[in-house]
């Protein structure tokens, strides 16, 4: 790890000013904010992240969960994953988020990791994490080692010829199913970005993962008012019983009226370059009867565009079973 300048941000504006000094807010940033540290220190030790300045934002007043008057829930960027998972409002009204958070990492990491940090969690692709090997995301133009390498855990949806990295977050999948909106403050003021527009597919610029520009600070995430009469399920499939990233996961928010789906959101994790909302699955389900045949049509539709690699073709079937089973659990009476 190279020497860096360490400072503590006294306020949001202070942090923005420091962050604006960076040439990019994406891979290769010269200035990094540190909150929980669980991604940043990990990658700094691997020399994958090499900031010249690290700005500690833990002192900023962004660590509360607030019920807004219009019914939305505002989650400060510094709210820890464990606090969010066990927050009474989240447990009762946004169960899919609580389940997703508790399925991720370990208790220690959840005590450290923040909402903003989890949102910006980086891929677990083993080639991205090994500085000695080519990786387009880490070193644009160097080539993707994963496409012809060990890609069992990597993405089958939203990939490109340049990158097949998976977004590893469980939280992001639940936030996508819930229709979260990201609040950002930057040099040009405040703005809001729906989570589906927040992340980019890799295309030919895999080093650029999201909308953030230098100086941009994620300050909060808001959830729409609790979906009414909906059941919520997060199902995560993996090799190990715990403490592992998803091979495939599904977040379901569903409402059933008279035996058919009246509201449905399907998001997938562990299989895509970004938290993956499946409009195709949702279209297959609206107004359809709640039965396994509908679930299967939805699952087929969700994976229709999948592009398997040499070792991860099984994820197509795995993701389908994940969707079907999660829908079954969500609609079990």
């Amino acid at each position: 790890m190279e020497m860096f300048a360490f400072s503590e941000a006294a306020g949001v504006e202070d942090a923005i000013r420091a962050g604006a000094e960076s040439g990019t807010a994406q891979q290769g940033a010269r200035v990094r904010f540190v909150a929980g540290g669980t991604t940043l220190l990990d990658l700094m030790k691997l020399d994958v992240e090499r900031p010249l300045a690290v700005v500690d934002i833990n002192g900023l007043p962004l660590d509360t969960v607030t019920k807004l008057t219009d019914g939305r829930l505002k989650i400060g960027a510094l709210v820890r994953n464990s606090d969010l998972a066990y927050h009474p409002d989240v447990r009762s009204n946004y169960a899919v988020l609580s389940q997703a958070l508790l399925s991720g990492a370990s208790a220690q990491l959840r005590n450290m990791a923040t909402t903003g940090g989890n949102l910006l969690q980086r891929t677990r692709c083993m080639y991205f994490r090994n500085r000695a090997l080519p990786c387009n995301k880490r070193e644009p133009g160097s080539g993707c080692s994963a496409i012809e390498g060990e890609n069992r855990s990597l993405a089958i949806l939203g990939t490109s010829a340049h990158c097949i990295a998976t977004n590893p977050s469980d939280m992001n999948v639940a936030l996508t199913a819930l229709g979260a909106v990201i609040q950002i403050e930057g040099t040009a003021g405040k703005r809001e970005v729906p989570i589906e527009a927040f992340f980019f597919e890799p295309g030919d610029t895999p080093e650029r993962e999201n909308v953030l520009d230098p100086g941009d600070l994620v300050t909060s995430v808001t959830l729409p008012p609790p979906p009414q009469n909906c059941s919520q399920v997060y199902l995560k499939l993996r090799d190990r019983a715990s403490y592992e990233f998803a091979l495939a996961s599904a977040a379901i928010v569903a409402s059933v009226d008279n035996g058919t789906f009246s509201y449905i959101r399907v998001a997938l994790g562990g299989v895509a370059s970004k938290p993956w909302r499946s409009l195709e699955a949702e279209e297959q389900l609206y107004d359809q009867p709640v039965d396994e045949a509908s679930f299967r049509r939805a699952a087929d539709a969700a994976l229709a565009g999948a592009r398997p690699q040499s070792r991860n073709g099984f994820k197509i079937e795995l993701a389908k079973r994940c969707i079907v089973h999660a829908l079954g659990v969500a609609t079990a009476s």
């Binding site: 929980g36 669980t38 220190l41 990492a105 370990s106 208790a107 220690q108 005590n111 450290m112």
Partner: peptide, 22 residues
């Protein structure tokens, strides 16, 4: 790298991985 838990300590009463914080 936060993958084993051997470094677990309490910070303000909560368990954390001391290897992943400055």
């Amino acid at each position: 790298h936060g993958q084993c838990g051997a470094c677990t300590v309490h910070v303000n009463g909560r368990r954390v991985n001391s290897c992943l914080t400055f």
